[in-house]
Design a protein around this nucleic acid. Sequence first.
DNA 1: GTGAAAGCGCTAACAA
DNA 2: TTGTTAGCGCTTTCAC
Lengths: 352, 352
Amino acid sequence: MSTSRSTIRDVARAAGVSISTVSLVLNNKGHVSEATRRRVLKAARELGYVPSRAARDLSLKRTGNIGFVLRDDHFTRSEPFYTYIFLGTEFEARLHNLYVLLTTIPRDYQPRVHTPRFLRERNVDGLLVAGKVSDTFLQEVRAMKLPTVLIDYEAEGFPAVVIDNQGGARVAVEHLLQQGHRRIAFVGADLQHPSIANRLEGYRGALVRTGQTPDPALVLVDEEAEPTRATGQRLGQRLLELKTRPTAAFCANDALALGVMETLLQAGLRIPEDVALVGFDDVQGATQAPVPLTSVRVFKEQLGELAMRHLVERMTPDETRRPYARGQHIIVVPCELVVRASSAHRKAYPPA
Amino acid sequence: MSTSRSTIRDVARAAGVSISTVSLVLNNKGHVSEATRRRVLKAARELGYVPSRAARDLSLKRTGNIGFVLRDDHFTRSEPFYTYIFLGTEFEARLHNLYVLLTTIPRDYQPRVHTPRFLRERNVDGLLVAGKVSDTFLQEVRAMKLPTVLIDYEAEGFPAVVIDNQGGARVAVEHLLQQGHRRIAFVGADLQHPSIANRLEGYRGALVRTGQTPDPALVLVDEEAEPTRATGQRLGQRLLELKTRPTAAFCANDALALGVMETLLQAGLRIPEDVALVGFDDVQGATQAPVPLTSVRVFKEQLGELAMRHLVERMTPDETRRPYARGQHIIVVPCELVVRASSAHRKAYPPA
DNA sequence: GTGAAAGCGCTAACAA
DNA sequence: TTGTTAGCGCTTTCAC
């Protein structure tokens, strides 16, 4: 017990069988009689036997690791969005007896310089990429022919697990419409980001569906900026300067919404009486905001779990499965609206 | 290139030597002639050879992994404190060619139920534990006889890398004293936490050193609570109810300080004119607070780096090192005061 | 200085 | 149903 750990040999000896039998039992393979199976299991338990990962991996020609890559600035954001996603993958990984190797890459990724070590050494069987990353990185990954799944981001040729951005945005805007709002602004940033673009689409869709004509003047977007609180503050300023001020704004994410809120409150406006606000992501800060923020809740851990599950499926060529297209599957995860004070019912327009 | 990766055999063949020679060259061992050394290196480079981790680990009887454990509620805090620490360890790990396996444990850790998988399977060569964790967990770790280093926490029998809590607190309070403050409160929580206890010590020390007698009435502590923003709000209330209000408060961390600030501002007090505030940790939110918060900056990534380095030292029994006590080394990392508006010079008391 | 060979602990043919 | 054996790719004695 106190000496070095026991091996498959020890178990075999203790159970009075050969090591291959032990291997078969432990991996539920082949046909082993119930009697020996029990003996083996018992011996293994009594010896506190745990298979050596290195030995198994060497024999199986795999690593048992999954790489998880995200941008460092995303990982260290004050909102633990990607942290939850990571925890989701980690949870699912346990079910498959895999380890997750987490590494960050810089925003301005340089192809050979910043390549994660586990990729360089080919020390992962599959790869998970969370959030928007440099395209040069994705190109490198593409060239490696490694099973890969993106999370909360989309790119040519990669399967991905994404939020139902469009659907969530639509529900959010429909909620505002239902509250009686007719002049609803959209606050956004970097439209290159598929998520943001989709949220804008959802916003437009909701308006069009209800027979409205989206007013371009109400689309407040800073194409060059990241969707941060600071950007929200600036865009809030622009909102204030509009000739006819909107009565509500749907913001592409909570950070932006919180920034807008700050600006509006400082300008002396009331929320939601003067301007109702809805965000997206439902971050922790949404609840604690001066005016609790209505938002679209995203199930971050679920994103991670699903991505890992999907990755594992792609890694194990299951013969029993039909030969579906090996292409770019996109898994869309639903989200849900959480109504808080920032968009509470306006006295003037009671809900339908 | 497109087929499976090349092995040490391939390199040996290409260089016209034996595999043991290749091994020696690649590990800088034994005496190999400069000529063959070059040939081997060249061959390895041309073949894009990367040693198999599994094979090496199997042979070396090690795993090449380091476990990193922290509480899930710490990891998902909105302040990426532990995220930075993790990144520090990850950075240092690369230098030693180690992988870091990150896992969280619940706050209410249950001994055999929640044991991290890599510990159960003994799949790490060393362990890093960040932040306060359940004592039952540490007991389990103790029993494993695994090289371990704590980070930002201390416990019997474990080496640790910690912030200079006492020193930082002292500097913070000295700063307030220098601003002319004489009634300085201490705002804290859970004194069981060594960091908080030490910060209180530093606070007292600064006062005593300058010949003051610490006033127990000014020590506002909620022993039962965690040092969070909510706790800070409550303690801020208690501060307001004091018969003779302090002119300044040193808070055990930024979360508490931010909570106190919120309460004071809502009560109509001005900061720093009515009450000056100083926090600890220098979190991201400190800069963005309504009144930018003076705080003690902590070099989080450095904590992680040092811990990893120390762990690696303990893992590799270096014969050349003197047989120092194998005991509980505590590495103290300095921190520095960052002065912002929340404690800016008061007109009444110009700086010395 | 270099090579042959054993062995790390496991899986998977292949025999029996 | 079970056992024998040949690897998996590397490190490391031990000869030469």
